[in-house]
Design a binder for these strands. Structure first.
Lengths: 216, 216
DNA sequence: TAGATTGTTAATCGATTAACAATC
DNA sequence: TAGATTGTTAATCGATTAACAATC
């Protein structure tokens, strides 16, 4: 069904957004949509939408547009929402707990199976439906459960060492929230660095450069 | 000091990362660095670094490189780390609390001055050094304190309405964590949408397309 | 001075937009 | 059939990289 070839990373970054908008439309009972209509909602050009969707195959019908439901399903399938990658979270501080509780892993092809923290006082405390385990148990857990994705909510000083160890234990992808740019040399390991601080700082930049606030 | 002109948004997005790396180098006691050395650490081309830094002015010295400390200070100043924009946070659920506690607002030109939640049971509870207020108090608070930035950690259904109201109360920038693409029509309002779910979903995509795991 | 490295211009690459023939 | 809208190719735009003269 999908043409594939080599999809540019900018297209891939837009895919979850298409998926969300189509989900919204589906909820509203919209059955078909043209690239022009969708472009108005998403503030993209219709050209770009057609170009993007065509990377993967001809999902539309000429003269008609796109079937909302089936297009959403196709994109979801491409993204992998129907997977169930076993996922562990390391670091059950404020942010770790919030991520565990706030993110719907299941609808994104992941299944949170373990939460770990180095602080023994947290061991046994539950977060959602999972009990926090001590980090000493990670190795055993990985050998038994073979998690594929690790969410890192730990201080930056430990990040690289822990990630390297996890690679040895079979982790193939990292969702990294520590204030550290994780890089893994091993082939075939994926890293998604999330820098919330950077995000805020660009907002500060734009706030201080607003047209009507030329200060200095 | 800065040339300015019109800086492309891709350069601006890289600025906080430069700032972090230079901070790290400064901590390590490194005094000077060449674009080539920095390019190796940051996995960029030396060309791009020189190109980026030159948008703002000649921070380097030919034959020598860049002074780490002063370059960092310059970039920090451009980003606005020395501002103190009064910032409010709406929605003190798991994520809201974690953001309030986990993000160092001060080092990013912001000052968290108020936390609000619609749930009256949370009113009075403290998060860090701030007591949660009821959302009914937002209007009064804004009229007295004139906050500039709002962090939105609220359900997507309410986001647009609350944001519109906040614009009327003087908020000029939004850091939006709700699962909703906030758009503001008013001129001169900045929005930074953070979609953590999208970030995870692209990681799921890449996990399912790893070279060694061609499944179907 | 010779060596190093920037600032800056030119060349390349990739992504976005425009246009239109194909087709439902 | 006529009208609408896609799929796809060509044109444009912008961002990255390469090259090198300027200069510390």
């Amino acid at each position: 069904m999908s043409k594939n070839g080599n999809i540019s990373s900018s297209v891939i970054k837009r895919l979850p957004r298409y998926y969300r908008f189509l989900g919204e439309l589906e909820k509203q009972g919209v059955e078909r949509i043209s690239s022009r209509e969708l472009s108005e909602k998403m503030k993209l050009t219709a050209s770009q939408i057609r170009q993007d969707l065509n990377c993967f195959g001809g999902f539309g019908q000429q003269g008609y547009g796109y079937q909302v439901q089936s297009l959403r399903e196709e994109i979801g399938h491409i993204l992998g929402v129907d997977k169930a990658y076993s996922t562990i979270l390391i670091g059950a501080g404020n942010l770790g707990k919030a991520i565990a509780l706030h993110i719907n892993f299941e609808t994104r092809g992941c299944q949170l199976t373990g939460i770990f923290d180095a602080n023994p006082r947290l061991t046994g405390e539950t977060v959602g439906s999972l009990a926090i385990r001590h980090t000493d148990e990670i190795e055993e857990f990985c050998k038994a459960e073979h998690p594929v994705i690790a969410v890192l909510c730990i201080p930056k000083a430990n990040t690289q060492a822990i990630a390297d160890k996890l690679v040895g234990l079979g982790i193939r992808s990292f969702w990294n929230f520590s204030h550290y740019d994780l890089t893994i040399d091993h082939q075939g390991i994926e890293v998604e660095n999330v820098h919330l601080g950077d995000s805020l700082l660009t907002l500060t930049y734009r706030t201080s450069h607003l047209k009507d606030s030329e200060e200095e």
